[in-house]
């Protein structure tokens, strides 16, 4: 199948491209954190996924050489995403529409698992009372910027 006499030319990516891609990835990591500070409503997750998808594409195309390599590798990678989309898509088609005829099926059976029954109710935010032994005063660890 393959040509036996000459070795195929291996692509060597210029240093500039690697460093450029690396820089772009770092910049977009900063952007995704900054963007998360604003509220775009339901578009939030879409924006976050678009940025992550863009970064992932750069990694796959340049660091993983999909751009230069055998197109078969691209097909394999793309099909893994396609079948993942089928899996998540059809599963969520059920989980999102379960309640259409029967509202009782909207959520999992236990909205609050039994193990919470003996615990003090959460009164929200910083004022929560102490729970079991290990629970330290809450909210000291909340992430900045939210």
């Amino acid at each position: 199948m393959t040509n036996q006499t000459s070795h195929a030319h291996h692509h060597i990516t210029p240093l500039k491209i690697y460093l450029g891609i690396g820089g772009t990835l770092l910049v977009f990591t900063v952007i995704t954190v900054l963007v998360a500070g604003f509220d775009f409503g339901p578009a939030n997750i879409l924006i976050a996924l678009l940025i992550a998808g863009f970064k992932a594409t750069l990694v796959a195309f340049f660091f993983m050489h999909l751009w230069y390599d055998n197109k078969l590798f691209f097909v394999i990678f793309a099909s893994s995403l396609a079948f993942l989309a089928i899996f998540i898509g059809l599963t969520m088609y059920d989980t999102e529409r379960r309640a259409e005829l029967d509202p009782i099926k909207e959520h999992p059976i236990e909205a609050q698992a039994a193990m919470y029954k003996n615990r003090p109710a959460v009164t929200g935010g910083a004022a929560a009372s102490h729970g079991e032994a290990t629970a330290a005063p809450v909210d000291t660890n909340a992430a900045p910027g939210h």
Partner: peptide, 13 residues
């Protein structure tokens, strides 16, 4: 389900 999970989700998986 006792822990807040969904048994039908298991069947999907």
């Amino acid at each position: 389900p006792a822990m807040g999970g969904d048994p039908v989700l298991y069947q999907h998986f």
